[in-house]
């Protein structure tokens, strides 16, 4: 491919508390190559280095060894404009609702744009756009108090607070952890819209294979700070044995189809999307009934 990747990570290493008895290797050579407009899932067991990896993407951590290049900006460059980088890459932490500090929703979402020094009209446009994108009505909600929101709504406010920076790349750490099923599905839909319609490159870390199957176009699996498997969901979920060895489950759909296949039914085991899988199963049932 001749296209320049929007994010390239080469042999990234990171050691916490280097040179002390508590030394801990979080990353021991991870590489990623992500093109503009992709939706990428990073999965792996707790302690596989996912969180450390994504903190490198917007310069909260600098490479100890290896390279991180975001849209032509090399993070090892000491003269790097970190503010510019952070406008390019929006990072949404786990439980981002904790970071809301303003009393009024509109003010909290406007915090980032104001810090960028934008004129108030531009700030307002961005807040409006961000709120509408995450599904909060600008006119109704902007003057409401933040304390009275539900958990799911708070998370939308926090997400809008990052989106208002208008990043090209959105990085999310466990975006749906702790949400009720309804808010979760809603949030996943919004992320899909962001990726498909607003053309924002999305990188997300997740433990939930269902949402990985729903959102991701490509998957990187990490284990012990190294790349384990990568590829499209079909390819990755096809490596069921490798995943199992590293205690990473596949989506329920893949599990069910795999077991059906093992029992001798004619199903495609990599039809991981919920609807496809349902079709496969219905087809089996029809054959059976005949």
């Amino acid at each position: 491919m001749t296209e320049q990747p929007i994010l390239e990570v080469k042999h990234l290493q990171h050691i916490y508390m280097k040179g002390t008895p508590l030394e801990h290797h979080a990353l021991s050579g991870v590489s990623l190559k992500i093109n503009k407009g992709e939706c990428i899932a990073v999965i792996g067991h707790t302690g596989s280095g996912k969180s450390t990896l994504i903190q490198h993407v917007n310069g909260l951590m600098r490479p100890q060894s290896g390279e991180v290049v975001v849209d032509g900006m090399n993070l090892s460059d000491p003269k790097l404009d970190i503010r510019l980088l952070r406008r390019k890459v929006g990072l949404v932490f786990q439980n981002p609702e904790d970071q809301i500090f303003e009393k009024i929703i509109g003010d909290d979402i406007a915090y980032g744009p104001f810090k960028m020094g934008l004129p108030i009209k531009e700030v307002r446009d961005r807040v409006k756009w961000a709120m509408e994108v995450v599904g909060l009505s600008f006119d109704e909600m902007k003057d409401r108090a933040t304390y009275a929101l539900s958990g799911g709504q708070k998370r939308k406010v926090a997400l809008a607070g990052v989106l208002a920076l208008r990043p090209d790349i959105l990085v999310l750490d466990e975006p749906t952890a702790g949400l009720d099923p309804r808010s979760r599905n809603e949030l996943l839909e919004k992320l899909k819209t962001l990726n498909e319609q607003e053309k924002i490159t999305i990188i997300f870390v997740s433990h939930n294979m269902e949402e990985v199957a729903y959102l991701a176009g490509r998957i990187y699996v990490l284990a012990d700070g190294r790349n384990l498997v990568e590829g499209t969901p079909e390819e990755v979920f096809g490596e069921a044995d490798t995943l199992k060895k590293h205690h990473i489950g596949a989506p329920d759909t893949v599990e069910i189809l795999g077991q059906l296949k093992a029992k001798g039914f004619a199903v495609r085991p990599n039809a991981y999307q919920l609807e496809e899988a349902a079709k496969e199963i219905i087809a089996v049932l029809r054959q059976d009934g005949r």
Binding site: K103, I104, I105, G106, D107, A110, F114, I120, K121, V123, R124, V127, K142, D143
Partner: peptide, 9 residues
């Protein structure tokens, strides 16, 4: 109280 970005601009 209204948000800072509220009102006519």
């Amino acid at each position: 109280k209204k948000s800072k970005i509220s009102g006519e601009l």
